[in-house]
Simulated assay, not measured.
Amino acid sequence: MKDFLHTMLQGQPPQETSGENAELTWQWLADGVLLLEPKVVADDIKHVLMSAGVHGNETAPIEILSRHVNRLLNGEMPLAVRLLVVLGNPDAIRAGVRYQSVDLNRLFHGHHRHYPACSETQRAIELENIVETFFADTSTERFHFDLHTAIRESFHLRFGLLPQKTLASDDFLHGLIGMGLEALVINPIPGGTFSYYTHAALQVQSCTLELGKVRPFGENDLSQFAAADRALECFICGEAFSADMLAPVKVYQVVRELKKLSDDFHFIDVSDNAKNFTCFTQGTLIAQDGDVMYRVERANEWLIFPNAGVKTGLRAGLMLAEADLDALM
């Protein structure tokens, strides 16, 4: 196999489901799931999960990650970690849609049990089993980067959501900053995202990365993702992050989840095209759901992921307050 993405898009397993080159061995574990391991394993080797395409229409991270995999398979790039590469929702990727029946990034950590069986619920179960096996009996550092692009515009073009309150590794933090992230959002609220699952269930240092705007295959300006591209390469190859890659980053803490309790939920002082990280002042009525009022409680709060169209019971937005980078370490 020479082209990972092309193979996945065909909808059939490769003729050979395992192989090797001078530096590594690889195994095709499932549709869009590839395990790559170096032939020489260091005692302190890191175990790294890199995922993209959990939403099938978020194509730029899929292209970037697949290009790195192709370089590894073709012997053009060294491998310094155990690497599990996951293209999350192959059926949706092939169809060019966000998801087919249910948003896959709401189904992990057992949340698939709350939905009728479909391709996405089965995929969540499959990925949980694969990832659990990958991280089993590992004692050195374990990382998960779940790569996404955002639906709406943002005042911070690239940002990350952390399901953990603190980070145990400088390498992980430097990698996130090295990806060109302008902001980090601490969000330990339990949920069904892929990154929350790997952290909560498997104690992996995890992050959901929003790296730009949704575009179809072939329409991405990959130069906008150059920092993330380079940082992923550093992690894969075991290279240190240089000082010029570590720019300042803003840190926010989720202070409230806007839960859609009924079909009456609607935003008040939020425009339909409001950007992520729009700032609102104390007392502003953000949303209403029947008798429930969501008002800004602090001097300033920032809103991300406003979406009144989600299904009842799901998150319709997150309110943030500023935090300190030191709080993460």
Score class of each variant (00 low, 15 high):
12 Q>H: 15
57 N>L: 03
207 C>F: 10
26 W>N: 04
243 A>C: 10
36 L>R: 01
285 L>E: 06
4 F>D: 09
143 F>D: 04
243 A>G: 13
309 G>D: 13
124 A>E: 01
257 E>T: 11
86 V>R: 00
167 L>H: 09
166 T>Q: 04
55 H>P: 12
169 S>W: 09
83 L>R: 15
181 L>A: 05
294 Y>F: 11
168 A>H: 08
293 M>P: 14
171 D>I: 10
80 A>P: 05
219 E>T: 09
89 N>H: 10
298 R>H: 14
9 L>N: 04
238 G>Q: 02
25 T>S: 12
13 P>S: 08
303 L>G: 09
147 L>P: 05
269 D>T: 10
118 C>M: 05
225 F>R: 00
95 A>R: 09
190 P>C: 12
116 P>L: 08
316 A>W: 11
104 L>W: 12
146 D>Y: 02
2 K>M: 13
41 V>W: 10
302 W>I: 11
2 K>V: 13
96 G>T: 10
83 L>K: 12
31 D>V: 05
320 L>P: 05
101 S>P: 08
293 M>E: 13
253 Q>T: 11
115 Y>F: 10
274 A>G: 10
74 N>H: 07
102 V>W: 14
305 F>H: 06
68 H>E: 08
23 E>F: 15
312 T>M: 14
51 S>R: 12
181 L>F: 00
327 A>L: 15
114 H>A: 14
25 T>A: 14
233 E>F: 05
218 G>F: 02
184 L>H: 00
254 V>G: 12
281 T>D: 14
172 F>R: 02
310 V>G: 09
79 L>N: 04
313 G>H: 14
145 F>C: 11
86 V>C: 03
58 E>T: 04
74 N>M: 09
207 C>E: 01
21 N>I: 02
50 M>I: 10
285 L>G: 07
14 P>K: 03
27 Q>D: 15
260 K>P: 05
248 P>Q: 02
266 H>M: 10
317 G>Q: 02
17 T>Y: 14
232 L>D: 03
311 K>Q: 15
158 R>P: 04
54 V>R: 06
295 R>K: 09
13 P>Y: 05
185 V>F: 05
145 F>W: 03
191 G>H: 07
258 L>I: 02
31 D>L: 02
